[in-house]
Computed example of a mutant assay.
Amino acid sequence: MKRGLKTFARAVQDGNTDGAEEMLEKIVQGNMKDRVWKGYHKALKGIIEGLNSDNDLTLPKQIADDNFSLEKLEKLRIEMDERSSQKFRPENEHGYSAAWSDVLQVIIEDAKEE
């Protein structure tokens, strides 16, 4: 797991955009290819934008408002995980989907611990 990702995901879950923004730059690339990392980073930035949106129907706001069951979150995580490994998708999309899968994994793990 990327350093800082747990704190980022927990900030998203709490609707804490300042905390998520602070952690965004601390999340390190690790061993990803440059194009994959760009997609990963873009997804994290998009999650923050979703929290900042006036639209209450964005996925990040729905997560922060606890409007998704554990089962729905797990289904979405699996879908994103599968998308991140599909060969026909471009590398930046692999990263984008991997970021969502990673964030959802932290949220699911936290929910199971409660």
Results as ranks from 00 to 15, higher is better:
M1V: 13
K2A: 13
K2P: 02
K2W: 09
R3T: 15
G4W: 08
L5I: 15
F8P: 05
A9H: 08
A11Q: 07
A11I: 05
V12N: 05
Q13F: 13
N16K: 13
T17P: 00
T17G: 04
D18A: 14
D18F: 12
G19R: 06
M23V: 00
M23S: 08
L24F: 14
I27K: 04
V28E: 15
V28L: 12
G30M: 04
D34I: 10
D34E: 14
D34L: 08
H41V: 03
A43S: 13
K45S: 11
K45V: 10
K45P: 01
K45N: 05
G46S: 07
I48G: 10
G50W: 08
L51H: 10
N52G: 14
N52W: 03
S53H: 08
D54F: 11
N55F: 05
N55G: 07
D56E: 15
D56Q: 07
D56Y: 09
D56G: 03
D56F: 02
L57T: 12
L57C: 00
L57M: 12
T58E: 07
L59R: 04
P60Q: 12
P60V: 09
I63M: 07
I63C: 07
A64K: 06
D65S: 11
D66F: 06
D66M: 06
N67M: 12
F68M: 11
F68L: 15
F68I: 07
S69V: 07
S69K: 03
S69M: 06
L70C: 04
E71P: 02
L73K: 04
L76R: 05
L76V: 01
I78N: 03
M80F: 13
M80D: 03
D81K: 07
E82C: 09
S85E: 12
Q86K: 15
Q86A: 03
Q86G: 00
K87R: 14
K87C: 01
F88R: 09
P90G: 02
P90Y: 05
P90W: 04
E91T: 04
E93G: 00
H94Y: 03
H94W: 14
G95M: 01
Y96Q: 03
Y96L: 06
Y96C: 00
S97D: 02
A99F: 06
A99S: 03
A99Q: 08
A99W: 03
W100I: 01
W100Y: 15
S101I: 01
D102C: 04
L104M: 14
Q105F: 14
V106F: 02
I108G: 05
A111S: 11
A111M: 12
E113F: 03
E114V: 05
